[in-house]
Nucleic acid binder design. Structure first.
Lengths: 229, 229
DNA sequence: ATTTAAAAGTGATAAATATCATATTTTGCA
DNA sequence: TGCAAAATATGATATTTATCACTTTTAAAT
């Protein structure tokens, strides 16, 4: 694997696309790359981060521990996205736990590099800010969904969302492997309810199930479901 | 009312606290102030904003229209806070509707001023970014609350939240006037459920109700409620 | 390859919440 | 000041969702 930032194709996908050659060299020098396996935690809620992480490949879930002990999946991230920049920029502890959903490689860029870049490069700071603004928009949409939609509607919504952001494999199955419990933790319901609703969707012909793999068969219908039809 | 930014006490409360005398003069020259009444909309979802707004006093609700036609209150803002900076920075349309909850004065600062400031003043851009980061944290916490807590727990949580951010009047009542429907729209439940639960809380001695005014009588108990005790 | 733990699935039941219908009270305003 | 509209309140009922108890299947580890 090429560990040279200048040639990294992933860079184009995130705020680092605004960083020019000279600065990139500095980053490249100070960064390190780690390999993580499914289930491994990159950092935990409450941790004091020493830098930010850039996903070279793979997918992660960002979770928050509720007082009842359940974990809420707040967001998913994939190849090319950054994590930890919120904590580093606001100089606070991590408020989310980041866990790998599959085997992957992550680049670590030390805090000082990021902050220095933020101060010296207004394109970079603008990009970071825009990306936080987008996250905020999505989070607000998510609040409205959680509050206004029932479990069935939220499941339909999530399935469409998973396919949209993760894409499909060559057989048409959504390209992410989630347990029923993880799906439940994302939509905010009991695992049993998720299992039951998935079976219903299957019976009604909206989806095909093959173990943990899910294929959407009737996206129009699923879209209608999300809106309560 | 003093319309001079240099002397504005509100400025200390938001990202503009990082703006120095010279820049402030420019802002002061280009800004305008408007008076709005309860129920008036400052801007709507989908609008293209020509600038950002700073609340000199009063309170607003930020809402999002759900596909079922119901409005979801996503956030409250009060004296000193900015709105519209998300849209202006990310150069997109407003994704929320801002409505006054009481009579108030709002300062309008044109887009160009804000963007110019963002580029030229890295303290200001850092402050704006931090404030977005904070909003994002709160939004994530809110997602977890909506998803993991039941309506009773969310109501207890919201009452404590309202008192915390809006304070109390001289009789101890929470200093914000919300209809039962608005409370319902904030916690994501039916208006009738909110009414019933408020009555229960009253009967159980946790709160006192006097029309729309609410006084918290047992905050420890309410706090326990939010955690499911 | 076998064992063992985790995940998926299912039924019965309880609890939470929405919905509908309607009465009463409050509020804004002509 | 009185009237109409909006907001609050309450009961009855339907629907949704969680919980518990258990079986079956799948996946992981030795």
């Amino acid at each position: 694997m090429d560990s040279n930032c200048e040639k990294c194709v992933i860079r184009d996908l995130n705020s680092l696309n605004s960083v020019m050659a000279d600065d990139l060299k500095d980053i490249s020098k100070s960064k390190s790359t780690v390999h993580v396996k499914r289930g491994e935690v990159i950092f935990s809620e409450g941790a004091s981060l020493k830098g930010i992480y850039c996903l070279r490949n793979g997918k992660c879930k960002l979770t928050k521990l509720a007082p009842n002990g359940k974990e809420q999946i707040v967001r998913f991230i994939k190849k090319g996205e950054l994590v930890g920049h919120r904590s580093v920029i606001s100089n606070s502890v991590a408020h989310l736990t980041v866990t790998a959903l599959e085997e992957m490689d992550v680049c670590f860029i030390p805090k000082q590099e990021v902050l220095e870049l933020f101060r010296s490069n207004s394109d970079f700071s603008m990009e970071i800010t825009k990306s936080l603004a987008e996250d905020l928009d999505e989070a607000n949409a998510s609040i409205a969904n959680m509050a206004q939609k029932n479990v069935r509607e939220r499941l339909a919504e999530s399935l469409l969302f998973f396919e949209r952001i993760f894409g499909t494999d060559n057989e048409g199955y959504i390209s992410v492997t989630l347990t029923r419990e993880e799906i439940a933790n994302a939509i905010g319901t009991a695992t049993e309810s998720t299992i039951r609703l998935l079976s219903e969707f299957k019976k009604e012909g909206f989806i095909t199930l093959a173990g943990k793999k899910i294929r959407l068969e009737d996206k129009v219908k699923l879209q209608h479901l999300t809106e309560g039809y």
